[in-house]
Amino acid sequence: MEILVYLVPLALLLGGAGLAAFLWSLRSGQYDDLDGAAWRAIADDDPPPQEAPAKR
């Protein structure tokens, strides 16, 4: 059962990483526009028009 010494911290670490990722996504506003995000995923990635080269 010594394996627990590794497995338990590992499990907590992975869970904690998941939580941290969730909190980060929440803070960076990824839940603000769920409808829009659903469409953006399938929208065509056309290059931006010539007048505005790589503004982002």
Binding site: D33, L34, D35, G36, W39, E51, A52, R56
Partner: peptide, 13 residues
Amino acid sequence: AIPDVTLARVNLT
């Protein structure tokens, strides 16, 4: 496409 615009983002919700 308007010059000097740095961000234009639609929120569909």
